[in-house]
Design a protein around this nucleic acid. Structure first.
Lengths: 139, 139
DNA sequence: TGAGTAAATCGTAGTCATTCCGAATTGGAA
DNA sequence: TTCCAATTCGGAATGACTACGATTTACTCA
């Protein structure tokens, strides 16, 4: 997803277009990797020195709810990235050094559904952690 | 894993056998599901009213490091359960109502390794969330 | 079996991510 | 342009978790 589509969805859900929201979305479009609320604040410190943490947290949560962002929890922190839209359902490899992600096509959920016929399945999480090629050669 | 094997491992790693550790391990053996540090404290409030939270956190972490417990992060909290030892590598279905878990045999990591030959893969997480048959019929 | 010692625990204060809240500001409809 | 609900700000509150000095205790070895 890119900035323009994100703004479109924002408006269509009845939210207002504000400088804070634009800055957060532009940052996430540019970075294209998982960032924490703290990362966002730091990155926008020059451009928007008085954006409050409340604003950052509230907007990241809103964006996540309206599927503009993808969200995960890593090392005790919520992290967000611009939602991918190349494929439908997918998972991620996440580089633990730079935060770069790589989309994975494999998902074993059909098999799990067959294994657990009497269970209600609401959600699942599949993530792979390690070091991306760039960080490997750099380190 | 059961209490006796856990104590054995504790001793073999050079840790002391204390009433706190016994109580925590017996609780986790009995419950057989993911509990948070807070859950553990509450459950032991009668039996050990003055066990400090430091003791609970420190021991849960130690047990996790020495593979007596399995650990996950759920809803912003670290949760722990007695380590399964029926199979080697496995994943879990987790009931979001009662915390009950069900072991899953499927793991797609061989396929992922083939998809990402130039990435270093250190770890992965695969969890399925929902409602177990007991909670479904009860609800 | 009874010190001696390092490990473990206690109690409490500190940290960090996140949420809450009232007051002030602002985007966008009319 | 005016107006109002949505948004933001600033700061305080929350809750999970960690740190730390003082005290207690499990285990070793004489």
């Amino acid at each position: 997803m890119n900035f323009d589509i994100a703004i479109e969805r924002l408006k269509s859900e009845g939210f207002k277009r504000t400088p804070s929201r634009e800055a957060i979305l532009r940052l996430l479009e540019r970075e294209d990797r998982y960032l924490s609320a703290g990362d966002v604040r730091k990155a926008l410190a020059d451009e928007h020195p008085k954006m409050s943490q409340d604003t950052v947290y509230r907007n990241l949560s809103s964006f996540s709810e309206m599927k503009i962002l993808e969200e995960t929890e890593l090392g005790g922190e919520r992290k967000f990235r611009m939602h991918c839209n190349r494929h439908g359902h997918h998972h991620h490899f996440i580089c633990m050094e730079c935060g770069r992600t790589e989309e994975l096509d494999v998902c074993p959920m059909e098999q799990v559904s067959r294994e657990l016929p009497s269970f209600v399945i609401d959600d699942h999480k599949f993530e792979v952690y390690g070091q991306c090629p760039d960080c490997r050669t750099a380190g």
